[in-house]
Design a binder for these strands. Structure first.
Length: 225
DNA sequence: AAGTATTAATTGTTTACGTCA
DNA sequence: ATTGACGTAAACAATTAATAC
């Protein structure tokens, strides 16, 4: 990326590839290469992201169909090339990614040579590949969390039911205290008809209160002979 | 033909590191 | 020796756009 890419950026600036952005009303910053218009490379140039020097042969990857190598014209009439990697290229990149998800400078160039790609393309592929991996992992994590949440809900429900059973059996064992102003604690919970979950009746913020009450009640039951 | 998914490529931001005053 | 400003490079996130289906 270092030096050669800087050169590339300059070359690009002089070339055509910044122009489509403007045409597409991109929200991103407008290019400072307005002067480049007159200096644009011919639209058949093979290069989009850099390495103009190598470009003409870079896309002639062995076994790659020409339709895979070149894009069609964009709306603005300018070209944005999109390489389609062939099976061999993808396979080798995948194989390397299995071992190392990041690239060293040496490996990047080695791969680029092997695959007849530009180092920048190898680099981009690894970046995108890492992004895909991360996305997949996020989905997996999300599903795991959902399942965990479900199991917690289930466990919570079960415990509440158990507590209610304990309470009702406790009622039968002992008569309520005389002259109590407080309503019975059991009234602060209700059972959801659909899922049979018990929930607090005092609206928002009741969950934490309810949990506290549950703990208190359990302690009460434990300490009370 | 239109819609969607995939993915190469671009752009801007963040982070880490080295250099220098 | 320490610190802050600055530059550079790599990685990342978000996005665009080409392509296949």
């Amino acid at each position: 990326m270092a030096e050669d890419d800087q050169k590339l950026d300059l070359r690009l600036g002089l070339g055509h590839c910044n122009l489509p952005k403007e045409d597409n009303n991109s929200p991103k910053k407008t290019s400072g290469f307005g002067v480049s218009l007159d200096l644009s490379f011919p639209s058949h140039s093979n290069d989009q992201s850099g390495d103009i020097i190598e470009s003409s042969k870079t896309y002639e990857v062995e076994g790659m169909e020409s339709q895979n190598s070149y894009s069609t014209k964009s709306h603005s009439g300018l070209m944005r090339k999109k390489l389609r990697l062939n099976k061999e290229q993808s396979a080798l990149l995948e194989e390397c990614f299995k071992h190392h998800t990041t690239l060293t400078m040496g490996r990047k160039h080695e791969l680029a040579t092997k695959l007849n790609l530009r180092p920048r393309q190898v680099e981009v592929w690894f970046q995108n590949r890492r992004a895909r991996t991360k996305l997949k992992q996020t989905e997996v994590d999300c599903n795991l969390l959902k399942k965990y949440c479900e199991s917690l809900s289930y466990e919570n429900c079960r415990l509440k039911r158990e507590l209610q059973e304990l309470r009702s059996s406790f009622k039968f064992d002992r008569p309520p205290p005389p002259f109590s102003d407080q309503p019975p604690k059991a009234k602060t919970t209700a059972t959801c008809p659909s899922c049979e979950k018990t929930a607090g009746l005092s609206g928002a913020g009741s969950d934490q209160k309810d949990e506290t009450e549950l703990v208190d009640t359990v302690l009460e039951l434990k300490t009370d002979p």
